[in-house]
Amino acid sequence: MRKVSDILARKGGNVVTIDAATLVLDALRLMADQNIGSIVITEDGAYAGILTERDYARKVILEGRSSDHTTVGEIMSTNLPRLLPENTVDHCMQVMSEGKIRYLPVFNYSELIGIISMSDVVTETILSHEHTIEQLKNYIQS
């Protein structure tokens, strides 16, 4: 069974972070520059939440707020479920599906070690299926 640690090993644990006092517009520019759909928000250097494109659309655009007057701390998602490296990919799918969540933080005890996206989970599932298919082909041919 594939685990969160497998996803992080494949994609790496690089996490882009910004301070909660950062303006939304600056966060969006950084996300665009990095080609990412979420960014980790910190307060006093510690994990505080995640800002996603969905947060921006729903909490800035739809509420008529200004991107250059609103901080990311005001609109970030907090209290998200936390994944552990030993969690299975199936567990990730269940948590993400039930909560309609696209990005989850991964912690090793209290240390943030990565972010898992729904896309990461789908990719890992496809790779796992491809590996199983290859093994079955080899078994049939032998």
Rank of each mutant, 00 (worst) to 15 (best):
61 I>C: 06
50 I>T: 02
102 R>H: 14
78 T>M: 08
88 T>P: 04
79 N>I: 06
118 M>H: 02
98 E>H: 15
132 T>C: 11
111 E>W: 09
37 G>N: 03
67 S>Y: 07
132 T>E: 14
46 A>W: 08
100 K>C: 09
55 D>P: 04
57 A>M: 15
139 Y>S: 11
123 T>R: 12
43 E>H: 05
86 E>M: 11
11 K>C: 07
94 Q>S: 13
134 E>M: 13
47 Y>S: 09
19 D>T: 05
29 R>T: 10
136 L>C: 03
20 A>L: 11
62 L>C: 10
108 N>G: 11
45 G>R: 06
6 D>N: 14
64 G>R: 12
110 S>P: 00
29 R>A: 12
89 V>F: 07
5 S>T: 10
115 I>F: 03
46 A>N: 15
134 E>K: 15
12 G>Y: 07
23 L>P: 03
92 C>S: 09
113 I>V: 15
47 Y>G: 04
105 P>M: 06
31 M>Q: 01
61 I>K: 05
46 A>K: 15
121 V>P: 00
34 Q>P: 05
109 Y>E: 14
21 A>H: 13
12 G>Q: 02
128 S>I: 03
99 G>V: 07
16 V>Y: 12
18 I>D: 04
25 L>G: 08
38 S>H: 02
6 D>A: 12
135 Q>K: 09
45 G>E: 03
21 A>D: 14
116 I>N: 04
12 G>R: 06
51 L>Q: 00
136 L>P: 04
11 K>E: 12
41 I>V: 15
30 L>E: 15
32 A>W: 14
110 S>M: 07
108 N>Q: 14
94 Q>D: 15
1 M>N: 12
120 D>M: 09
39 I>V: 09
72 V>R: 01
51 L>Y: 00
18 I>N: 02
47 Y>W: 06
83 L>W: 07
64 G>S: 10
109 Y>S: 13
67 S>G: 05
137 K>L: 12
7 I>S: 01
103 Y>S: 05
133 I>E: 11
95 V>F: 07
140 I>S: 03
48 A>W: 00
122 V>E: 10
17 T>G: 10
123 T>V: 13
23 L>C: 04
128 S>D: 13
28 L>F: 07
44 D>I: 06
94 Q>V: 10
68 D>I: 15
57 A>Q: 08
120 D>H: 03
89 V>A: 06
9 A>Q: 10
33 D>M: 15
13 G>K: 07
22 T>Q: 11
47 Y>L: 14
35 N>E: 11
82 R>S: 03
56 Y>V: 12
10 R>L: 14
11 K>L: 10
128 S>W: 09
66 S>G: 09
40 V>Q: 01
66 S>A: 14
84 L>M: 15
18 I>L: 12
135 Q>L: 13
72 V>A: 05
48 A>K: 04
101 I>C: 02
120 D>L: 05
73 G>N: 04
89 V>S: 01
48 A>C: 04
56 Y>W: 15
52 T>W: 07
